[in-house]
Amino acid sequence: MGRWWWAALLRRPQAGPAGSRGRLRAGPMAKERQELVLREWAALLEQLRRVATARVADAGDALRAGELAPPPGSHAERDYLWALEAYEAAGRLLDDAADLPDLAAAVVLAERAVERLEAAHARLAGQRPPAAKRRCSYNPLHAPARREQKQDGRRGRRARFGPREAAAERWPACESCHRDLLAGRPPDVLPALVRVRVSRRRTAPVLVPYLAVPRQFSPWAASACGAYGDAVPGFVLRGGHRREARP
Rank of each mutant, 00 (worst) to 15 (best):
T203L: 07
T203Q: 14
A204M: 15
A204K: 05
A204G: 02
P205W: 01
P205C: 04
V206Y: 11
V206I: 09
V206G: 01
L207G: 00
L207Y: 03
L207P: 08
V208H: 06
V208D: 11
V208F: 01
P209K: 08
P209Y: 07
P209E: 12
P209I: 03
P209Q: 11
P209S: 11
Y210M: 12
Y210S: 12
Y210E: 09
L211C: 02
L211E: 13
L211A: 14
A212V: 11
A212M: 11
V213Y: 02
V213C: 04
P214R: 11
P214M: 08
P214E: 09
P214G: 08
P214S: 08
R215E: 15
R215N: 05
R215T: 11
Q216Y: 07
Q216S: 10
Q216C: 01
F217G: 14
F217P: 00
S218G: 09
S218F: 02
S218Y: 04
S218M: 06
S218H: 07
S218T: 06
P219Q: 10
P219R: 02
W220E: 11
W220F: 03
A221C: 04
A221H: 05
A222D: 14
A222C: 01
A222V: 12
A222P: 08
S223V: 03
A224R: 01
A224S: 15
A224M: 02
A224Q: 01
A224N: 04
C225L: 05
C225F: 03
C225D: 08
G226I: 00
G226K: 07
G226W: 01
A227F: 00
A227R: 08
A227E: 05
A227I: 03
A227S: 13
Y228Q: 14
G229F: 06
G229D: 08
G229L: 04
G229R: 10
D230H: 09
A231K: 09
A231R: 14
A231V: 06
A231T: 13
A231Q: 13
V232C: 10
V232D: 11
V232P: 13
P233K: 09
P233A: 01
P233W: 02
P233L: 01
G234T: 07
F235L: 13
F235D: 05
V236H: 08
V236A: 07
V236P: 10
V236F: 05
L237A: 07
L237T: 09
R238P: 00
R238F: 00
R238K: 14
R238W: 00
G239D: 10
G239S: 10
G239F: 04
G239M: 09
G240N: 06
G240K: 07
G240V: 05
G240Q: 06
G240T: 05
H241T: 04
H241S: 12
H241Q: 15
H241L: 02
R242F: 00
R242M: 08
R242A: 14
R243P: 00
R243I: 00
E244T: 11
